[in-house]
């Protein structure tokens, strides 16, 4: 993965299993969000392939209509929520449903209310994004990501900017999503509390070596990894083993 001539991550190879919560972790500037942009089809990798179950070719090798169909199976929660500011929360959730004409107007309205209720925002249908708090914005973004009942969720730093209690509630919501919907969830984060609470599997990116330096269950990595960089990251230790 690269921006022009500048390589961000290289030699990266990992797989995400169905119905697991997969954490992409790493320090600031290690390329977590860039990796996510590649996974959700916003940026083409300089080299390599991204394969999804049920497709015959890589994300960027398939024809655009096929890719569009695949993208419809994704639900993405962006770091800042990325709610469309000119629309109410209900309209934000309803837009994807309207676009794909999944239901009639009345059903769409009911579905929007349901999705908002699932994230604890019942009654906030007519609020605009500017009128709600940061935590509510994240949850509304999650409701929108859930609109099309996706198979795979991608969350970009869901806890960023939230207080510990709100952050914990969001973690619980992510666990509920996995358990109740049977969804596969990919989370980009560097919040250790979240990583150990929700992570089934993970990959740790390192900005210095520009690649993944560990992969596996975060708790196991903490217990078993002999790499001082992994230990330093997972324990917030200052000792990185680089001398």
């Amino acid at each position: 993965m690269a921006y022009g001539d500048s390589v961000v991550i290289q030699d990266l190879n990992f797989s995400v299993n169905e119905r697991e919560i997969f954490i992409i972790m790493g320090g600031s500037g290690s390329g977590k969000s860039t990796l996510l942009r590649h996974l959700i089809g916003l940026q083409e990798p300089a080299r390599g392939t991204i394969l999804y179950q049920g497709t015959s070719s890589g994300l960027w090798e398939m024809a655009p209509p096929e890719r569009e169909r695949l993208l419809r199976r994704f639900g993405v929660l962006y770091q800042g929520g990325a709610l469309w500011s000119s629309m109410t929360l209900a309209e934000n959730v309803a837009l994807p449903l309207q676009e794909y004409a999944i239901a009639d107007a009345e059903e769409i309205s009911e579905l929007s209310s349901l999705k908002l209720a699932l994230v604890g925002l019942a009654g906030f249908e007519d609020y605009y994004p500017s009128e709600i708090s940061g935590g509510m914005t994240k949850r509304a973004g999650l409701a929108r990501a859930m609109a099309l009942d996706p198979d795979i969720f991608f969350f970009d730093e869901p806890s960023a900017g939230l207080d510990p209690i709100t952050s914990r509630r969001l973690d619980d919501l992510i666990l509920d999503l996995r358990d109740s919907l049977g969804a596969t969830i990919v989370v980009v984060t560097h919040e250790l509390a979240s990583i150990f609470t929700i992570g089934d599997n993970s990959v740790l990116l390192d900005g210095e070596s520009k690649t993944a330096i560990a992969s596996g269950n975060p708790k196991q990595l903490l217990a078993e990894s002999s790499d001082p960089r992994v230990h330093a990251f997972l324990t917030r230790s200052r000792e990185t083993g680089r001398g």
Partner: peptide
């Protein structure tokens, strides 16, 4: 501003 807030990315990932 929509681009800076990732609102355009959100449209793209929803296939709009």
């Amino acid at each position: 501003t929509m681009e800076a807030n990732q609102e355009i990315d959100a449209l793209k990932t929803l296939g709009i």
